[in-house]
Design a protein around this nucleic acid. Sequence first.
DNA 1: CCATAATCGGATAAAAATGTCCTCTAAAGA
DNA 2: TCTTTAGAGGACATTTTTATCCGATTATGG
Lengths: 162, 162
Amino acid sequence: MIFTTTTEYAIRGLAELAGRSSDSKSIMLDELVSGTTLPRDFLAKVFQRLVKAGLLKSAKGRGGGFTLARPAHQITLKDIVESIDGPIHLDRCAVGLDKCNDHQPCPQHDLYKPIRQRLKDYLATTTVADLASSLKTKQAWVKIVEIKAAEKEEKLPTNGKH
Amino acid sequence: MIFTTTTEYAIRGLAELAGRSSDSKSIMLDELVSGTTLPRDFLAKVFQRLVKAGLLKSAKGRGGGFTLARPAHQITLKDIVESIDGPIHLDRCAVGLDKCNDHQPCPQHDLYKPIRQRLKDYLATTTVADLASSLKTKQAWVKIVEIKAAEKEEKLPTNGKH
DNA sequence: CCATAATCGGATAAAAATGTCCTCTAAAGA
DNA sequence: TCTTTAGAGGACATTTTTATCCGATTATGG
């Protein structure tokens, strides 16, 4: 829900990119996806689109790779979604009446409006920098859990499972 | 966004059903879709699922058709969505980290949470009765616009377009 | 009990989304 | 200049979603 698979790859890819390149060095795809579950070849296609949309810069050949076209805090979720899916059309009527829009609202339309507005705000204000930071925090979190699990394993060596 | 095509058909179909059967008489598919853009055969499949999910009752043969399995105000959007897509998984991390959930949240997760909660509330509180009422209001609205357009047409008979 | 009328359910098709592979092109460095 | 390295982009494969069709099944009414 909310995002398509392709869009999610774009989001994750950009978050990884922003998180890994401390300075503004370019990063290669192979490096970017290592340690993640991101599908290398498909992400390549997605990144091509992001390059054309102006969110990424790419360089061929040796020392090539990808860089953010502008600072991470200036790339929003909205930018990403629109680069992939085209203009966001959250304005459609929930009931599905095509002639329904902000100028000709149905009651349902108005009920849904505040939610839609919140979503829009979220998409417009959340940046790749936020995502990268979230990603790092989360990765640290996962690591801690793994360490604790390993410690537990040591104390219970009888159970050979996994 | 938000709903898949199939889910939207389900929503629209149920709204039509609730709006057309003043009492609890059953309605045939052909009658239901007449005057709408709902695809008859595909909706038939969708309705089969809703029957199995317990939202609709169906009757074969003469005098058959579909009825709501319970009062319109007791069928929520959530019920519909889950009948089609299975349990709603709005809880996935926006960043796409699979190990992220309410017990192991990442920062992004918490930012998105209030929106998700609002969406859930909307799905849980909006009923087929609401949708049917919205639909009727809207249909009346469209009719008024058509009439006004026709009046305008009479005053400008030179323009033969349409 | 037969003709009719309606959904059910299987088969199939068409379209869109997702995923993979391979060659071309551009850039860097020896 | 030649070789290596990286993304670009076309072709193709797979999967999922959406759509259509038709015979089977079930019920009604004469």
